[in-house]
Design a protein around this nucleic acid. Structure first.
Length: 292
DNA sequence: CTCCAGGGATGAT
DNA sequence: ATCATCCATGGA
């Protein structure tokens, strides 16, 4: 559920699990019987990436108690906000504007296969995400060949700022939210929404509350029912306070629940419901399995 | 076929 | 501050 929730776009289904890279290390991961089995690299890296130390029960308890939030909380049981590498997260969300999740995955794949490093894991071939330095050396025309469209110019310009060190994404982790956000928004192709996504998914700012078309629809239809003319300012103030200290988590639960249960998706209602695990997977549940 | 998607930059009120 | 328009592409 975590890897299919629209926060990260490069993990691909393989057998009963997923293959992908954490930084520059290839992994296969598979959740089975309340444990997380893996192949490749070290378990500690996985536990950190999947944020298995986040106190999920406490976080979910901090969400507001209302009908919409309760439904999302139950539907998304076990979903975590993971710790993504900064550049990888920033680059993919620059590419995300006016794109469906399925196509963002396609763009991520095109960039990785063209500019990422190739890895071998057992008989599986996979590519890590393209370094900023590598993308900075390409051209806008070449990026457009990856189906980036008008986003190519922004990705290239931001890659060059990051590669040159002018935008030092790692050192920015020490900044408070109200200084980090304007730094991100100053990058080409980064506005309020993408900045909040990067803060939430790559800087562990769990209050950051990205408002995309789905969340805006939920806020207006469910929380501001029959109140036309809600200003963007009002929506910002509301989402910044109402959902509490882990507002970003709440936002991800609302997003994933809405996307997976939307009546527009054929057969969504007939889909078998997620079963609540006996307890959340934690860092002590990570198992290496060479047979995988 | 049509509709719309995890938006941002720019310029006009 | 709020709004209109343009920007490319392909999934549903």
């Amino acid at each position: 559920m975590t890897l299919d929730s629209g926060q990260v776009f490069h993990w691909e289904k393989h057998g009963d699990g997923f293959v992908g890279t954490i930084g520059d290390r290839p992994f296969y991961v598979e959740q089975r019987d309340g444990k997380l089995f893996f192949l490749g690299g070290k378990g500690g890296l996985i536990a950190n990436y999947f944020a298995l130390d986040h106190p999920l029960a406490e976080i979910c308890a901090s969400f507001p108690q209302d009908a919409i939030m309760n439904a999302a909380r139950e539907f998304c049981c076990g979903l975590r906000i993971i710790r993504q590498p900064r550049w990888e997260c920033l680059a993919t969300f620059i590419c995300s504007s006016m794109k469906q999740v399925a196509h963002i995955r396609q763009i991520s794949r095109a960039l990785r296969h063209r500019y990422g490093e190739r890895h071998q894991l057992a008989d599986i071939e996979l590519h890590s995400f393209s370094a900023a330095e590598r993308i900075a050396r390409t051209s806008e025309a070449e990026l457009r060949a990856c189906a980036l469209g008008y986003r190519a110019k922004n990705l290239l310009a931001t890659a060059r700022l990051v590669a040159s060190g002018e935008a030092d994404l790692e050192s920015w982790s020490a900044l408070p939210d109200d200084e980090l956000r304007p730094r991100l928004c100053a990058l080409p192709g980064v506005g309020a929404k993408v900045a909040n996504c990067v803060m939430l998914f790559a800087y562990e700012r769990l209050r950051a509350f990205p408002v995309d078309v789905w969340i805006e629809r939920i806020l207006k239809e469910k929380y501001f029912t029959r109140k036309p003319r809600v200003t963007a300012q009002h929506l910002r103030d509301f989402s910044a306070t109402y959902f509490g200290e882990h507002g970003g988590y709440a936002q991800q639960y609302l997003f994933h629940h809405a996307r997976k249960t939307s009546s527009r998706r054929r057969g969504a209602a007939a889909r078998p419901r997620w079963r609540r695990p006996r307890r959340f997977v934690s860092a002590s549940d990570v198992r290496y399995d060479s047979r995988l």
